[in-house]
């Protein structure tokens, strides 16, 4: 059973408070994180991935202190960034897929077998030697997803992975994600994509503004955004 626990977390970035005294307890398998640009969603996701550490308070995923115990964190949390170019480190698809699992202790040969099996699962068995730079945006997203899945984390964090993708690609990747056994924490502006989730958390200025099932949170959120969008205060942009 999944458990993400944030206890009284403070986080500042360049001397500006991003999150203040935030506590959260997440046990659901499908959770969405919504809010305006700059609400602190991305920083929260990075905290839960253990990529940054809180200035105060604790962040634990399945009991693992993800910011400190990196080795255990790798088995626990995977993250899919918005821009695949921020994630793909290696020139070829096979190197990319093998890197993470080799870090987890697999030998090169084992890693290659696992990567090949993963490529087959997504019907792209011949991708191994292909050059990442030559893949389309959607294909690169898929490589990122496969690389994360190979590491078998209990939780996958999605930081707006569909921004800028065409409808068909979004739909296809969305279908892949739905079918996963892993728990998902999904940051998105696409409200339709999360209508079927168990829980939606609305973050604003580093604090939780609403938290509950989509039927109650999403209508409030929509109404609020409409009102803001129709107003003229530039400071609210």
């Amino acid at each position: 059973m999944l458990s993400i626990k944030l206890n009284a977390v403070d986080l500042a970035f360049n001397n500006t408070a991003v999150l203040s005294d935030l506590s959260l307890d997440i046990t659901q398998q499908r959770v969405a994180l919504i809010g305006r640009n700059g609400a602190g969603k991305s920083q929260l996701v990075r905290l839960i991935a253990g990529l940054i550490r809180p200035d105060r308070g604790t962040v634990r995923v399945n009991g693992v202190d993800v910011g400190r115990d990196r080795r255990a964190a790798l088995q626990t949390v995977g993250i899919l960034f918005q821009n695949p170019d921020h994630q793909l480190i290696f020139p070829t698809v096979m190197e990319e897929l093998c890197f993470g699992i080799q870090q987890q202790g697999q030998t090169r040969a084992q890693a290659q077998d696992m990567a090949q099996a993963m490529l087959q699962r997504f019907a792209c068995a011949d991708w191994g030697p292909r050059v990442v730079h030559g893949l389309s945006q959607g294909q690169r997203h898929l490589v990122c997803l496969m690389a994360v899945l190979l590491m078998r984390p209990a939780l996958i964090l999605l930081d707006e992975p569909f921004a800028g993708l065409d409808m068909a690609t979004t739909r296809r990747l969305g279908r892949y994600l739905e079918g996963l056994d892993q728990a998902l924490l999904h940051v998105t502006h696409d409200l339709a994509a999360i209508a079927g989730y168990e829980r939606v958390i609305w973050l604003d200025h580093g604090q939780v503004l609403a938290d509950g099932p989509p039927d109650t949170v999403l209508p409030q959120f929509r109404a609020h955004m409409m009102a803001l969008g129709d107003g003229d205060a530039v400071a609210e942009l």
Partner: peptide, 16 residues
């Protein structure tokens, strides 16, 4: 800035 995101991607997949 790319170096920052790359180092983040490296940390997301490596312990040491």
């Amino acid at each position: 800035d790319d170096a920052e995101t790359v180092s983040e991607a490296l940390r997301a997949r490596t312990g040491t």
